[in-house]
């Protein structure tokens, strides 16, 4: 005769080894989970400590309001971060203007117009763009996009903000397209069918029904893509140049926060110098930017979330 469930539980309770495993496994899993949290805390602490060292040598006010970034100057080094922020924003602005219309347009097409077969083929193909290494994108910007742009507009210099901006935009298209398409596809079929049954065209359904319903997912995807564009390093390091400028010119060489960090990390400054510590201050500023964008993405995602 087979033992009852209660008898089996009673038997298993009696086994000491099982009891120990039951206690160890949650602790082990907790330790594994805390590795990522501790790593993040370690990174942030390092950033904060080294940034404080930088601000013990350079005025915080000059850092956040200064319009000249000249750390390698022979006379007097200047650490005004605004030119690096402007450079980063130039790249981000161009990238967003390329990626948002194309990404959301592709998402609407795949979600509302394309057949199941087309969607099944095109979506993974588009996602290949996200898997291309950024160094390849950097060379693509420098050796293909820049010469094409120079052919169209001769005033554009070899290092400029437009070419890397466009390529960063291409890089973040799959992020916007794929996440937005997921958000649109998750809108219940009944809502879509209801609108179509009322005589709406597919375009009206997409704009007046699906987009508002999937707004939280779409905005979150855009904010995450912007966050990625702000933090992009290799493309701008290769194709944007290294001239920190506080102006509105997009045709000449610029420098972003990330490309400055790369420049110094490659060995342009010795350990313990002010220039060395400046990369932590710039990194901390970058961290604040991306953290704010991620907080915004979480807020928007919760604020506009539709429950069905």
């Amino acid at each position: 005769m087979r033992p009852s469930v209660q008898e089996m539980i009673a038997q298993s309770k009696g086994k000491k080894s099982k009891k120990i495993i039951e206690k160890i496994i949650p602790i082990l899993l907790f330790l594994i989970a805390s590795v990522s949290v501790l790593t993040t805390i370690g990174i942030v602490l390092t950033l904060i400590v080294e940034t404080f060292t930088f601000f013990s040598r350079v005025s915080f006010f000059d850092f956040i309001t200064g319009t000249t970034w000249l750390p390698f100057s022979n006379k007097e080094a200047q650490y005004g971060i605004l030119p690096l922020i402007i450079g980063t924003l130039k790249i981000t602005a161009i990238a967003v203007s390329v990626a948002v219309p194309i990404g959301i347009g592709a998402a609407i097409y795949l979600s509302e117009y394309a057949s199941e077969t087309v969607r099944r083929i095109v979506k993974p193909v588009l996602e290949i763009l996200a898997g291309v290494p950024t160094i390849v994108y950097g060379f693509f910007a420098l050796t293909f996009v820049t010469p094409v742009l120079q052919g169209l507009f001769p005033e554009i210099k070899i290092f400029n903000a437009i070419s890397p901006g466009i390529v960063v935009g291409i890089m973040i298209i799959p992020m916007i397209a794929s996440l937005s398409e997921d958000a649109m596809s998750s809108v219940p079929r009944q809502i879509r069918d209801g609108a179509l049954a009322m005589g709406s065209t597919k375009f009206e359904v997409a704009i007046k029904v699906i987009l508002p319903a999937a707004l939280s997912g779409i905005v979150a995807s855009v904010v995450l893509a912007v966050s990625r564009a702000i933090g992009e390093t290799m493309i701008v390091s290769l194709a944007a140049g290294s001239t920190p400028r506080f102006d509105g010119d997009f045709t000449g060489s610029i420098q972003t926060m990330t490309s400055y960090i790369v420049q110094v990390s490659k060995g342009d400054a010795g350990y313990g110098t002010t220039i060395y510590y400046s990369i932590y201050a710039v990194g901390f500023t970058l961290f604040i930017f991306t953290m704010l964008m991620n907080i915004l993405a979480t807020y928007v995602s919760k604020r506009f979330k539709e429950e069905y």
């Binding site: 219309p101 194309i102 990404g103 959301i104 347009g105 592709a106 609407i108 097409y109 795949l110 509302e112 117009y113 394309a114 095109v122 193909v125 588009l126 290949i128 763009l129 291309v132 390849v136 994108y137 693509f140 050796t143 293909f144 291409i170 298209i173 799959p174 397209a177 065209t201 597919k202 375009f203 009206e204 997409a206």
Partner: peptide, 27 residues
């Protein structure tokens, strides 16, 4: 309007695919 925007959305998808094609071709 529906037809025009369908074309526009299809164009957006085509541009993204074209970018990928050019990139892969160059590589």
């Amino acid at each position: 309007v529906n037809f025009l925007f369908k074309g526009l959305f299809m164009l957006a998808t085509t541009i993204a695919l074209l970018a990928l094609a050019i990139l892969l071709y160059r590589i």
